[in-house]
Design a protein around this nucleic acid. Structure first.
Lengths: 342, 342
DNA sequence: TGTTAGCACTCTTATAGTGCGAGTGCTAAG
DNA sequence: CTTAGCACTCGCACTATAAGAGTGCTAACA
């Protein structure tokens, strides 16, 4: 229902505002290349676009800025993805150049490069630790009444936690337990560990060990404590450089929300395949109502997935970020799958 | 060389400014309890204190604020430590209430509570990882050409790193190597690991293993990579709430500097026993010239030490922070030593 | 001689007024 | 339908003004 000319004006307005952060006026817009009609015409069209809710004024006689609906339309219909400039590609590839063999290291590095490239904040979610497969369990006694439990997973991730052990326990008992645990639990996902520990393992243990109870129960508690989320940040402070954010209170609550890993699922919708853009109040968290978040998923092998998110102002360079994330998602999938398979 | 009255005026001025963040004038000060002389007298004394460099004016006809020298004098001579209010003690003790048995967990928690209590940023340094003693080494093969090296230390700290292994290596070779490593290196500090790996271990390995070279050298590289510093933060964002900081650029560079663990030794002078206060430009880093940093060390057993630091504005509540840090330092020493010994 | 009341002066802050520039909406002519 | 023209509206930068808080200095006082 928008005319060609209105589409053009909307697009140019959004582009210009993204670039300059200044409300764009009819005269200014008329000077742009590709505009063949006068500022008066533009004024009329802009008034229409405003009444349709695509543009807004900051005050009665100011230029226009895109409304959330305007951004949404722009993103849905006017985004012409553009090939990435060479420098960007070079930078992105630099993530992989020194053949790191640790998944987490690669992700960490991606977060850093991405934030440098965009000047926004990046949040990267690694593959769900719960789905990792147990490769080896071990228990290392530390003192007479404490030991550290270690779980190594197939991806090279290592979980460890100190837990109390009964005083005066025979080391051979521990060894026996570790053997049983490994026998029964290697190949199980961390997610399944919970039930497996309860069911089978406990029975076996009961048969073979004296005093299994005390040792086993504290071990179980330690192993089942909530694990840290696999989340990495880049450019946490970049918000401070955005001209769109000046209110210290807003900045504070935004940063608070992002740091809190419990909120991550609200920022990055899990299980979502492909690329998604949330603009302003489309975000679940009210602290992010002035932000846009672009997320994309990536795959590691057939089973595991992770996510990449960029948090920036609504006036975000959507075109560029989309291209960057598309490329990085592909690269990450390829590289991390390679590491997994190697 | 300062008269009693001047000392009193200096003290009250600093106290008042710390509390109100407003320059304090002679009339205002004359109203305070404990002041028996008139505002005119105060004006004269303040003029003297200013000419001696203890006070400053923000502009010709404003009230006075303490200069760095003023703060320094206040801290050195006028600080009358006061018993902590009960609420503070309760809060501090809550760090230890659920008998956590992991050193790092306790420190993490201290950082959090401390920042909540002070509204400033806390930085806690754990005991130097380099001085930890190797309790156990292990290598867990992941794929045909990668494995994860794990070092467990006496404190329950676990270091781990993925490293490449030669394709088609016999698992028994790895086991042999792990055995030799444990035989030779358990009981050695991480710091000494470097040289020990080179000297003795390499020789032994040469004698007992075929193809030791490839495996050993990548393992060695992995193990010797720089370790993460043992540093924990609390209230990183509290700076944003300080009325003393409004310049976004300054805030940014301050936060940047604090996040960068390489800079930590510049913020917290290592090896310093006891409590230290750095005021404004006394700090090594120029980004911190508007900050004061109070540090205190704590001990774990006889050998190991850590540090606690509070970073806040120069207009910091020195009295309270000093008491808090004194208490926490004692409590931490006791508790962590207990964990170590247990 | 030290202390204090008084006073002129300074400087910040808040408020209001002014002119300029950029922008708009509307009207009327092309 | 498009556009030139014009009156009008704001925001912003600048200036002026008044109030308030504080100072330094002087002179009187104990």
């Amino acid at each position: 229902m928008l005319t060609e000319r209105q589409l053009l004006i909307l697009k140019v307005t959004v582009d210009d505002y993204i670039q300059s952060a200044q409300p764009v006026g009819s005269n200014q817009l008329a000077k742009k290349s590709g505009i063949t009609f006068s500022s008066a015409t533009i004024r009329n069209e802009m008034a229409d676009l405003e009444s349709m809710g695509f543009l807004e004024k900051t005050h009665t006689s100011s230029g226009r800025i895109p409304s959330e609906r305007g951004y949404r339309y722009y993103v849905d219909h006017l985004l012409t993805p553009r090939a990435l400039p060479k420098e960007d590609i070079v930078q992105l590839r630099s993530i992989f150049e020194d053949k790191i063999s640790e998944t987490e290291e690669v992700i960490k590095r991606s977060a850093m490069i991405l934030s440098e490239l965009t000047n926004y904040t990046s949040i990267l979610l690694g593959p769900d630790v719960q789905r990792h497969i147990v490769k080896k369990l071990s228990i290392v006694p530390l003192t007479s009444n404490s030991a550290v439990a270690i779980i190594v997973t197939d991806s090279g991730h290592v979980e460890n936690r100190v837990f109390p052990i009964p005083e005066g326990l025979d080391p051979s008992e521990i060894e026996k337990m570790v053997n049983i645990l490994n026998e029964r639990l290697v190949g199980v996902s961390l997610y399944d560990l919970h039930s497996r520990l309860e069911q089978e393992t406990m029975m076996i243990m009961k048969q073979h060990m004296q005093r299994y109870g005390e040792l086993f129960s504290t071990f179980r508690q330690a192993v089942l404590l909530p694990r840290e989320k696999n989340v990495y940040y880049g450019g946490k402070l970049n918000i401070l450089n955005q001209p769109d954010f000046h209110d210290l209170h807003k900045i504070r609550s935004l940063m608070d929300v992002m740091e809190e890993t419990d909120h991550i699922p609200m920022i990055i919708p899990v299980g979502n395949q492909g690329l998604h853009i949330r603009i302003g109040s489309e975000n679940a968290l009210s602290a992010m109502e002035d932000c846009s978040v672009i997320t994309v998923s990536y795959d590691i092998g057939q089973e595991q997935t992770g996510s990449i998110a960029i948090v920036g102002p609504k006036r975000m360079d959507y075109k560029r970020i989309v291209s960057l994330l598309d490329t990085l998602s592909g690269d990450l999938s390829k590289e991390l799958t390679r590491i997994l398979r190697s």
